[in-house]
Amino acid sequence: MSRLAWIPVGIVLLLLPLYLEAPWLKAGQYMMIGAVGAIGLTLLTGQAGQLSLAHGFFLLVGATSYTVLAGPKGDHLGLGLDPLISLVGAVAISALAGMAFAPVAGRVRGIYLGVASLSLVFLGLYLGQAAESLTGGTSTGRDPATFKLFGFPFSNEGDLVVAGVPIRGTERIWYLFLALLALAYWLARGAVRTRIGRAWRAVRDNEAAAAAMGVDVRRTKASVFAVSSAYAGLAGVMTVLWFDILKPDESEYGTYGVNTSIAFLAMVIIGGLGSVGGAVIGALVVFGLPQVLTLYSTDLGWFTGSVTPVLVSSFVYGAAIVLVVLFEPGGLAAVGPRVKHRIRELRS
């Protein structure tokens, strides 16, 4: 997208809270969580060619770190730090957790790595249940601290009115998430175009050739794991703020489980492996669809009994993965340029 095209998009996103009801804003926020996480995964899997099913685990690391760093001292372990510092700290801790996986990531390739990374999800499941002083445990969970920016709370506290619309917690969180997503997007776009992005792609395409050009393959893999985990950690912080609770999973199919890892992988595949913009589009589909279907569920009247919005969305993204691999390996990100190309061909 050209730079000018961003201006109307930005204006619309900034104005939406003035027009949309809270449930719609919540749905939008959820998509933004997906987008941040998916950008991280597309760097790892798409740019650097390392399959990971551990994204759900790093979400949990970020979520728990924020809650512990910002949490009050009390029943659970809490350091009572400033929320902004806690957010940055949680992202840093997630990056370190990703780095700690480097001995495995550096040795094990491709699909092997994907399966190896699955073990982190199971580790997270166990630790989430066992470390109650950090996570609050599966039965009650734990309340995260309200996010504050230099004292300004992202909750319903205090009166703030813009153009006659009260800007309450939901609206404030919208702007917070929008800012975080914009930052995450901008950093990723910049990085893939420079030295580190070239090193990632070289490692993906041919490790021997990358090394012959002076790229330290192990270090590069460790670094991309760290970056990807940092994104997942940020998405994890956003997740606890969105749910307003940290609750570890009871089974491997939960907020931080295998299914979540697969959902992120689906976003990245559907959007087009390696495409930062595509990851955002993929998140709109995979995280957006269940939210939007739920909001429309009464109007649609489709969802009776066992057919739920979540189920329908799973079918859609499952099928989307199959179709993308079969027919459009570049994902949705490649559809735009292809259509443009076809139109140009038809004209001439």
């Binding site: 992988l265 499952g318 099928a319 989307a320 199959v322």
Partner: peptide
Amino acid sequence: ALLTIGVDVI
């Protein structure tokens, strides 16, 4: 392999 993930989900 990614394709089989889609199949598995469905």
